[in-house]
Write a protein that binds this DNA or RNA. Sequence first.
DNA 1: GTTTAATTTAAACGATTGTTTAATTTTATT
DNA 2: AATAAAATTAAACAATCGTTTAAATTAAAC
Lengths: 217, 217
Amino acid sequence: MHPIRNNTMSHIELNDKKIQILNVAEKLFSEKGFEGTSIRDISKEAKINIAMVSYYFGSKERLLEALIFHKTVDLKLQLENLLQEEIEPLEKVNKLIEIYINRICLNKGIYRVLHFELYNKKREKSLQAFTELKKGNLKSVESIIKQGQAQGVFRKDVNIQLITPTIIGTFFHFHMNRSFFEELFDLKTEEMFNNYIKNDLTKHIQQTIKALLVYEN
Amino acid sequence: MHPIRNNTMSHIELNDKKIQILNVAEKLFSEKGFEGTSIRDISKEAKINIAMVSYYFGSKERLLEALIFHKTVDLKLQLENLLQEEIEPLEKVNKLIEIYINRICLNKGIYRVLHFELYNKKREKSLQAFTELKKGNLKSVESIIKQGQAQGVFRKDVNIQLITPTIIGTFFHFHMNRSFFEELFDLKTEEMFNNYIKNDLTKHIQQTIKALLVYEN
DNA sequence: GTTTAATTTAAACGATTGTTTAATTTTATT
DNA sequence: AATAAAATTAAACAATCGTTTAAATTAAAC
């Protein structure tokens, strides 16, 4: 019996083999793009039969949907927990930045896939899930900054909705030009690259957002 | 006679038909990705025969190379002209930001193609041209900011090499999530979207970089 | 006007794509 | 141990891919 046809919520039950396929798909999609990756590539790397992808996910398109859903669920929770913490606004912003960076680092390739494959609006189902995620993120950021503004520590003439683009955009641009910065900063190993992100890049973004939020004309 | 086989610098001579193909290729590559765009798609939209792409450019791969070369040549010149201008450092930085944004806006899709199709390091030839471009850009930025630091108007504990990621990354992230921000800011027409970039987004980036550069702890 | 070169075309090439089928093996249930 | 369900397999499907060919058309050169 085919598991997909009779079960519309199939993406919720994730057995080991499904997760294995998703991980390989994430890796290959991020390396070669969605269209550039064939099901045969995935099945070869995941050491399964070609038919298993269709068997488990129904189609390549729905494999992508399952991948996006699988990888974006818990970021929202993490941000809502941050909101509840009783620390001063600037520290909260710094933690927010760390969460963002850590998140994207953890799910290495998926954000590239997200931005790239959802740019054309045809994949509406996945796009909607992604949009919901972004709306939730924006609400968290808004809440934190308005808190700081109410306390008088953040200036009020900042465009709150454009702060996330600056945080994520900076990190993303760094990541998208990885080989360029590896050469520029002489980051020879994976560890050195990750350390640069954890220390220097994170610090730069925190410094930038702090300056933007507390700078007085 | 085949024009490619006997002319290795074929990308320099660009007749009308070649440019027409490049423009269509840019549009489709940015919409659907390199792998997601077939030569048949291009030839249909450009209203030419399928064989003409191979005839003019040799292959799909070399069409991409020609496209990248064609679209990135004159940014370098524009930045070098800015360096010569005798205006105060902060204004120079603001102009730099405007040049970047205007540049990427003008060549709408190509930067998306650049970042995503060159991420995997297989397209070494195109990648090298792109790397050279980025190195040149970085030198310009360095020069401008060090000038401001020497004059005492910019602080010295900023990571100069990470400023470009913040500028371009912010803009790029905004552009990559276009439909999200269109809904968020209620930008119903192409004109409204472009106006938002020209006014609000540019202002936000300029404000951010200014704060980072002149903010005193 | 004839000849030569450049352009454009339709057709075909083999390779690869995502997906389905039907048979087989493994696992679970009774 | 027998039966039913699930998982896995190899093979085949039609469709599309990038590229090449060889003939037809247009433009240029003399």
